[in-house]
Amino acid sequence: MTVRQAYPIGHVRTPYYIRGKSGVIERFCGTYANPEELAYARPGLPKQPLYRVRFRQADIWRDYRGQDGDTVDLEIYQHWLESA
């Protein structure tokens, strides 16, 4: 999956550093009220599917100085994911 490279204003739980990067789904976490709506006192419904996505560090940072297998896992809402 690839994280959308978008820059909307507001309470977004998708960090900048992961936008536009590709990884694989590690697990489905369940559905949660959308935090981008909740932050503005809206109900955030319908609930949104949340996934944990695993990224290779070497795919995120150009000069990553760790080992090849190193990873970072993030929680990404479905509306931020596109098939890679």
Partner: peptide, 28 residues
């Protein structure tokens, strides 16, 4: 982005053949 360096600052040396897996607690 530099987990092995930061871990070393904590005195934690992770061998090269052990994967470092960072978990960003970024949502729920």
């Amino acid at each position: 982005n530099s987990p092995r360096e930061v871990l070393r600052e904590f005195g934690t040396v992770v061998p090269d053949d052990v994967v470092v897996r960072v978990h960003d607690s970024n949502a729920d």
